[in-house]
Amino acid sequence: MGPGAAPPDQAVVGRLRGAGCVFAEEEAALLAVAARDAEELSLLVDRRVAGTPLEQLVGWAEFCGLRIVVAPGVFVPRRRTELVVREAVALARRGDVVVDLCCGTGAVGAALAAAVPGIDLHAADVDPAAVRCARRNLPGVPVHEGDLFAALPGALAGRIAVLTANVPYVPTAAVPLMPPEARDHEPRTALDGGEDGLAFVRRVVTDAPAWLARGGAVLFECGAGQTGAAVDVVTAAGLAARPVIDDDLGGTVVVGRLP
C-alpha cells in the first residue's frame, strides 16, 4: 500500500486468506482500488475466491517494471517469462526486426521495446481477445492475428533478428492438474502444448530458420524437465542451442541461434 492508503478490510482479507490467497492483504488492497463501491468490491472478492486471476479482476499485471493491461480471459504474464525478456534484450539492437510471437497481452514485446528503443517490433497471436489486448499494450505496433508464422507479413521472412515465442508447453494430460486460476480462466490454447508439451516448440523452431536473419535467434520458455528434449529440437533444426536457467525466477529458456 502507498503512503496514506487505507488499511484493507479485514473481512475481505479473511475471505481471501481462507480461499488460499497467500498475499491476502495485498490482494485486498488492490481489489479495493479497482472497485467503484462496496457492492462491486464484494463481487470482485466473490470472483477472486472462485479462482479468477487477480490480474484479470484489477485489469493489469506488473511485468518487467511495466503495468500491462490484462483483459478477461487472456493469458496472464508470468514473472518467470521475464527471463525471456532478459535474454532477448542482450541480443536485440536498435533497428532490428523483433517479433513477439504467441504474444498474449504483448507483455514481452512491451518490455523489449522499453529496454531497447528503436527496434522494429511486431507481435502476433491466434486468440482474437489476446490480439485486442496486445494492441492496447503496444500502441503503434503492428499486432497480427493468426496461427504462428502464418500471422506475419511475408516481407519479414529472413529479416527477424530476435524472435520470442511464448508458446504453450504444458503437456495435455497435465492441464487438468493446473491451478484453477489458469485451468478455468485462461484460454486452453495458451496452456496446452500437446502430448509432451513441445508440439508448438517444434512448429516454431522448425519454421524459424526461414524467418530469421543471419545470426538471428529464437527464444522460448519450457519446463525444467523439458530442457533436454527442447535443445534436441533446436539442434535438429540446424540452430545452435543454449539453455538458460534462473532459479530465482523459476524460469527455463532455450535460445536457438542461426549460424
Score class of each variant (00 low, 15 high):
R67W: 12
V70S: 05
A71Q: 11
G73S: 07
G73W: 12
V76E: 04
R78A: 06
R80S: 14
T81F: 00
T81Q: 00
L83D: 07
L83M: 09
V84G: 00
V84R: 00
E87D: 03
E87Y: 01
V89E: 09
L91D: 03
A92C: 08
R93W: 09
R94N: 04
R94S: 15
D96W: 07
V97W: 04
V98I: 12
V98T: 05
V98R: 06
V98H: 10
V99T: 08
D100V: 04
D100G: 03
D100L: 01
L101W: 05
G104F: 02
G104W: 05
A107Q: 08
A110I: 01
A113V: 03
A114M: 07
A115F: 10
P117Y: 11
G118N: 13
G118V: 12
I119T: 12
I119L: 15
L121S: 08
L121V: 11
L121Y: 08
H122Q: 01
H122I: 09
A123R: 03
A124Q: 04
A124R: 08
D125C: 02
V126T: 07
D127S: 15
D127V: 14
A129R: 15
A129Q: 14
A130K: 02
A130W: 09
A130D: 04
V131S: 01
V131I: 09
C133Q: 09
C133K: 03
A134L: 08
A134N: 11
A134Y: 04
R136A: 14
R136M: 09
N137M: 11
N137L: 10
P139H: 13
P139R: 12
P142T: 10
P142D: 13
P142N: 12
V143D: 01
V143W: 02
H144R: 14
E145S: 10
E145P: 00
E145D: 05
G146F: 05
